[in-house]
Design a protein around this nucleic acid. Structure first.
Length: 603
RNA sequence: CUCUCCGUAGCUCAGCUGGUAGAGCAAUUGACUCUUAAUCAAUGGGUCACAGGUUCGAAUCCUGUCGGGGAGACCA
């Protein structure tokens, strides 16, 4: 870029600058066309603040000494409190009435109304702070700090009478406007894509969203306390595993460069926790972030959290009692009652929960007694029930399919489904009295599985055979069958205490406990397809290089042609049309283009 | 992967069987010293997701693409 171009650029900047009424830096002057009107105005305000000697992003701490919830909770009882508060938060609405204004300030704990009077924040002659800085240069979404005293307005609302006011962070993008009155919400952001991609905005503007996540954390804390108080030890085990074991699922694969081996993101942490029990711990647990490379829907996210815990010398009956007690406690802690409203149902987490054998459940809902059936008989049953089966499915998978299709949805109230067929439970101890079954339960709530537990298999010879059966299934084409983890077998050969273990889907439990129908609503940042780049990054120089006059470059970009390739691919007639239209529309005082010029750009 | 619905101003949404876009809030300017979905007046703001096609004419009809929701398939 030679000197003349630089000179031209700065000349153009002045022109654009006056057009948009704010300074534009040469480096990114094209941006001016790509911002919305409101964003331009906010940048303009930002510059004006600088011009007034105000730093809209001050570096020093702001000494907050109270939050909104504390004030609202305590002030009415004692009006002498909070007579010198400093508080900070985001401006959510403004009601300006000349020399006095009301502002709703939102902090992490809630909202409170501010009363800002011109002559209080500007005691002298100079009213700039109120008239200009507050009224004109401050916007909804800005983060401010104020100092003042708490009082009650004539309308009876607890408010802060502001004496000092300071901008702590200028907001450049307008927030969606959500209004509330008498418990009703107006214009809430309902677009799922917007909510999930820009959760930060969802959290700011939509009432109740924060509460879901606060409840989720409270739930996890309650569980942690429940376990810790009984002597359980929280541990961390590897996320990157060379053998993805402990569950039937498709893993994500990655590669470790230094070791030059494939590694898998864990689908479960079961086998590692069991190793720790071999090592001599009696009770270990982990809130495990697991990853499964499978479909996504409202109960499945590629990464999700499972609580697993393993307890030596216990069996699955003991585990059922623990589970009941734990969930009862969670419900009480979160809702103050064991009855939790989920959608239009009320679910009672009052212990004990109902228990029923999976085969009895199938008998109840289908009439078939599949207990002693062989594979071909079972296939026939599936056919009669119109359940799709294929050659890769063994006995266990078919029974699972029948249950999933015909029974699962009936269990709204917490119900333990117990005593599963051995074929679908390769890590589970054989049933003490019912041949062909294992000591396993799943907890169904609201028609969904939320926990899965067993008396854990600790016979290394049996375990080896079960793994080998899995390999046979894999050879039949079952891509979910488990790999053999030889180190796990070795650990078991040293002697593994009898134990019971469980996995509880924390996301699904959070859905239940917060009455959300979609897993995306209990994850801060649910998985999404990457957003297409909204603004294509390109350098003006590549457009200049085509011979486009410098004064036309921002116009070309505004017209949607952001790269040299875009311009070359364009029909010159259309391009000329678009550009001339913009020139007219924006009333640009630059020479009109001729078709020959435009054609020359793409040659 | 299949079916289905959706994508219009910063946000929430209208826009009929084709005739180049409207409202409320938000924004700008002004009035107003206890308002609270504040009010009143005026003003500005849109490549109607993207790309093709049909047509004199497309937000609207057709095809494809992208993104999202829902249902199914697969799967915990």
């Amino acid at each position: 870029m030679d000197l003349t171009i630089i000179l031209n650029l700065s000349g153009l900047c002045d022109q654009l600058s006056s057009f948009f009424n704010f300074p534009i830096f040469a480096k990114n002057f094209s941006m001016a066309y790509e911002l919305s009107e409101q964003e331009q105005i906010r940048r303009n305000s930002l510059q004006e603040l600088y011009n007034l000697g105000i730093n809209p992003y001050p570096p020093e701490l702001f000494p907050v000494n109270v939050n909104t919830a504390e004030i609202l909770a305590n002030f009415l009882a004692d009006n002498s409190l909070y007579q010198d508060v400093t508080i900070a938060g985001r401006i959510m609405t403004r009601r300006i009435m000349g020399a006095a204004s009301f502002v709703d300030l939102q902090d992490s704990a809630g909202r409170i109304q501010l009363y800002i009077k011109r002559d209080d924040i500007c005691p002298g002659e100079d009213k700039t702070l109120y008239n200009t800085v507050f009224k004109r240069l401050t916007d909804i979404g800005d983060i401010i700090g104020v100092r003042g005293y708490v009082f009650v307005t004539q309308m009876g609302e607890i408010s802060i009478h502001v004496k000092e006011f300071k901008i702590l962070s200028k907001s450049l993008k307008p927030l969606p406007i959500v209004k509330e009155a008498d418990g009703q919400t107006f214009d809430a952001v309902t677009d799922a894509e917007f909510k999930y991609r820009q959760r930060y905005v969802d959290l700011v503007v939509n009432p109740g969203v924060k509460d879901v996540f606060v409840k989720r954390t409270k739930m996890v804390n309650t569980i942690r306390e429940f376990l810790n108080s009984q002597g359980a030890l929280e541990v961390d085990t590897p996320v990157l595993q060379s053998i993805p074991g402990g569950a039937a699922a498709r893993p994500f694969v990655t590669h470790h460069n230094a070791l030059d081996i494939p590694l898998y993101l864990r689908i479960a942490n079961e086998l590692y926790l069991k190793r720790l029990i071999v090592g001599g711990f009696d009770w270990v647990y982990e809130f495990s972030r697991d990853f499964r490379n499978e479909g996504m829907d409202r109960t499945h996210n590629p990464e999700f959290t499972i609580l697993e815990f393993y307890v030596a010398y216990k069996d699955y009956f003991w585990m059922m009692e623990q589970t009941e007690r734990m969930l009862e406690k969670v419900a009480l802690e979160l809702h103050g009652t064991t009855d939790v409203t989920v959608g239009d149902k009320v679910i009672s987490f009052k212990a004990p929960f109902k228990r029923i054998g999976i085969l009895d459940a199938i008998k109840e809902y289908t009439g078939y007694d599949v207990y002693s059936m062989d594979e071909s008989a079972l296939r026939e049953v599936c056919k009669n029930l119109e359940i799709e089966v294929n050659e890769t499915m063994g006995k266990g998978k078919m029974i699972d399919a029948i249950f999933g299709e015909k029974c699962e949805q009936h269990y709204s109230q917490p119900t333990f489904i117990i005593d599963y067929p051995v074929e679908m439970s390769p890590l589970t101890k054989k049933h003490r009295s019912k041949p062909g079954l294992v000591e396993r339960f799943e907890l169904m709530v609201n028609g969904k599985e939320i926990a899965n537990a067993y008396s854990e298999l600790n016979d290394p010879i049996d375990q080896r055979e079960r793994f080998e059966e899995q390999v046979r299934l894999m050879e039949r084409g079952d891509d979910e069958a488990m790999f053999i983890d030889y180190d796990f077998l070795r650990a078991m050969e040293y002697g593994m205490p009898p134990m019971s273990g469980i996995g509880i889907g924390i996301d699904r439990l959070a859905m239940l406990m917060t009455s959300q129908v979609s897993i995306q609503d209990v994850l801060f940042f649910p998985q999404m397809r990457p957003e297409k780049k909204v603004v294509q990054q390109s350098d003006d120089s590549e457009l200049l290089a085509l011979g486009i006059p410098v004064e036309w470059v921002p116009v070309v970009r505004k017209a949607g042609f952001k790269t040299a390739a875009d311009v070359k691919a364009a029909n010159p007639n259309k391009l000329l049309n678009d550009l001339s239209g913009l020139r007219k529309k924006l009333k640009l005082e630059i020479p009109a283009l001729r078709i020959e010029e435009v054609k020359a750009w793409s040659e």
